Amino acid sequence: MAQGSYVEPTFERDTNYINDRITQDGADGWPVEPGRYRLVAARACPWASRAIMVRRLLGLEDAISLGLCGPTHDSDSWTFDLDDGGLDPVLRIPRLKDAYDKRFPGYPRGITVPAIVDVPTGGVVTNDFAQMTMDFATEWTDFQREGAPDLWPVALRDEMAPVMKRIYTEVNNGVYRCGFAGTQETYDAAYDRLFTALDWLEERLAGQRYLMGEHLTCADVRLFTTLVRFDPVYHGHFKCNRQKLDEFPVLWAYARDLFQTPGFGDTVDFEQIKQHYYEVHRDVNPTGIVPLGPDLTNWSDPHDRESLGGSPFGEGTPPGEIAPAERVPEAANPALGPDGQLRR
């Protein structure tokens, strides 16, 4: 998760990332090479969840391995407390900070997920979450699965860019602006900005199935990671409470449509999401108590978005079954079966 400054009066996100890229030509010294890199993520984090989803949608599991941190962390680093012995089984480190320090001793900025680590050296390559998924879509094409969707289509890029920018500034970041506002005035302004953007999305999606029309793109992935956390976390924890997601007729149906699409809902761990926000953000929730609600079984309700036409993967196909080691536990997501797949 990208780091921010939670001090009065307004929330400001630190966006100074390690911006090296892994590309086909290796211009930054990091050539595309299957098996060389490890994506370190956390299912609790919306920015990291984006990378997990895109990797699965494109079928890059065999090319880029996945290391998962636990849902909570201290002020210093994300940790591999989900793994035996508290060590990542590939990198053999207990804390993600170790990979940052390996390349940049005494790394002075926040230790964030997602991060890509160079397995041979053990050093971090990049933590630029936005560019990372774009490169999965465009630089790793030789290793994508057959039938992988085009998530960053050339013909739509000029139109997509301002849509994705508004989603990032007003929605993805907007909920944090509400949650970490330091004064009533800044909270009020943040609240108005957020719901103005959600109303815009409600209108935009009323007549088309996806943000850019008939097929899934990176824009939908970016929006989904906030929408899926809205009712379990942001509505209460971050005081984004004009209405719940399930009180937006269009956005709620759109979110369920995505959730029920392979590659989206089958990567969501509601248990870890709630644990992270309510246990880590002690400035917002001093007791660390994690609420038992809300009831999340409604994510499986019919959405009827098929009536708008279009298809999620265009001329492509859905991703296949999730490998056992990467399955979300059934107890953490009521829409999943014991095999980690979405119930039908």
Rank of each mutant, 00 (worst) to 15 (best):
Q184E: 15
G182L: 04
L194F: 03
G174N: 10
Y176D: 06
I167T: 06
G174R: 09
M164R: 12
P162E: 08
V163G: 07
G179K: 08
E185H: 14
A189Y: 01
D192H: 15
Y191F: 15
Q184P: 12
G179M: 12
V163K: 05
Q184S: 15
L198D: 03
R193L: 00
W200F: 13
R177G: 00
V171G: 02
L198S: 12
V171W: 01
V163P: 08
R193V: 05
R166D: 04
W200I: 00
R177K: 12
C178L: 05
T169A: 05
F180D: 11
A189F: 02
Y191S: 13
V163H: 09
V175P: 12
N172M: 10
Q184C: 03
A161C: 02
T169R: 14
L194V: 06
E202M: 08
R177D: 04
L205E: 13
Y176E: 14
T183Y: 07
E203G: 03
V163M: 06
E202W: 12
Q184N: 10
G182W: 14
A206T: 13
E202R: 02
R204T: 01
G174K: 10
Y191N: 15
E203C: 13
Y176G: 11
V171I: 13
E170A: 11
T186W: 00
D192V: 07
V171Y: 06
D199Q: 12
I167N: 01
V163D: 06
Y168G: 10
L201C: 12
T186I: 09
A161I: 07
K165V: 03
C178F: 05
R204E: 00
F180Q: 10
F195R: 01
L194I: 09
A181M: 02
G174Y: 04
L205K: 03
N172R: 14
F180M: 04
R193C: 11
G182F: 08
L198A: 03
G182P: 14
A189W: 02
R166Q: 14
C178G: 02
D188R: 05
W200R: 03
E185Q: 15
N173L: 11
A189K: 09
E203Y: 08
G174F: 08
C178T: 10
N173A: 06
D192W: 00
T186M: 08
G179L: 03
L194T: 02
T169I: 09
C178I: 08
E170Y: 01
V163E: 04
N172A: 12
T183I: 14
M164G: 04
L201P: 02
C178V: 13
R193F: 00
Y168S: 06
A206K: 09
R177S: 03
L205F: 06
Y176N: 13
I167Y: 06
R193H: 08
I167A: 10
M164V: 14
R166N: 02
A197W: 03
T196W: 07
E170V: 10
E170W: 02
A206N: 12
R193A: 05
E202C: 10
E203D: 14
W200E: 07
L205I: 10
R166H: 09
N173C: 12
E185V: 09
C178K: 13
Y176P: 10
Y191C: 09
D199R: 03
V163I: 13
T186E: 04
